[in-house]
Design a protein around this nucleic acid. Structure first.
Lengths: 158, 158
DNA sequence: GTAGTACTACTCGGATAGTGATTGTCCGAGTATCAATGG
DNA sequence: CCATTGATACTCGGACAATCACTATCCGAGTAGTACTAC
């Protein structure tokens, strides 16, 4: 899985503590000492997916495009890592003896079905967890996080 | 995910219909018109994992090393695709402000926990399905499969 | 006729190239701010 | 003093390399069978 997924999730959590303010990729990258340009690339993907909104120019940057309770972990995974499933059925049964070339073995093949079922529960789990849930858990476990994060960004020399 | 996972699963199903007989990679590959040497590589991985047993020389080949009800889909995935999870926590929190370098953020970070939880249900689903289950489903839906598969391997010109 | 032996053919196993995706970097298009200028 | 305009600095956005894993292939080590030879 793309490493940017992790970066995107942490960045969304940080952005949730800076509502209404656009943070440039440079500052967001500095927070975790990440390569700025590469993080920018990932944030672009989140923007294309409608998760973030971007503004150019001075005072520009990224901010959340919708409430955190409407951003699921699956949204971020799909936006950055792509919509394809890990297991892709290449329909090798079509090359086997007694195969019907017209049949769609991605739905017929029982192995493909079993793998799809597993990925289904995986995605269902990710879709059930929103950034709001994560933020709430973090604030419960580390109550100082929002305040200290805001302070860090404020004190960051531009 | 490695394409060999699909090949390995289908091959295990086919091997379940040829009990006690060792089939060489060449024949197993011919069944689905797969590249022989590359399939051989995947079967080596299954052998290292103790899922298959291999025999060299004439009349040699691969066969199942244990009963089909003790081979789960997860076993095959782990053997071929590796034991690593898709989402790997790189602990970027360690580079963040106010981080404790001693802490293991793979277990502390709530995002990492959420992703691990999703992969857990994924693996649980795969671990609950054995090759025996798949074989039983196939035989129920396509009763002629075992017989026709045995016939195909028997009629294959060596 | 039978036992021993050398040969042959076949298989797995790991070491070796080729290819595509992920990772990382760079520069250009666009925009808001700021300063300077003229009324 | 205030409005306008031009320059400037900063940001995103997409185009351009480098690295790594997956894909694919090949040849050597080992083994079982077979045929031949000698007794």
């Amino acid at each position: 899985m793309n490493e940017g997924v992790e970066w995107g999730m942490h960045t969304c959590v940080n952005l949730s503590w800076m509502p209404g303010e656009a943070l440039p990729a440079k500052k967001l990258a500095a927070f975790y000492e990440l390569p700025t340009a590469y993080l920018n690339k990932q944030l672009q993907a989140l923007t294309r997916a409608g998760i973030l909104s971007s503004t150019s120019g001075p005072k520009g940057g990224f901010q959340l495009a919708r409430p955190t309770d409407r951003i699921t972990l699956l949204d971020i995974v799909v936006a950055i890592d792509g919509p394809d499933e890990a297991f892709r059925c290449t329909e090798i049964l079509k090359a086997g003896p007694g195969a019907d070339p017209r049949e769609d073995y991605r739905t017929t093949c029982l192995i493909s079905q079993a793998m799809r079922q597993a990925e289904l529960v995986y995605r269902r789990e990710l879709a059930a967890r929103t950034i709001a849930d994560i933020v709430a858990d973090v604030e419960r476990q580390f109550p100082r996080s929002p305040e200290s994060t805001r302070a860090w960004f404020a004190n960051l020399k531009s």
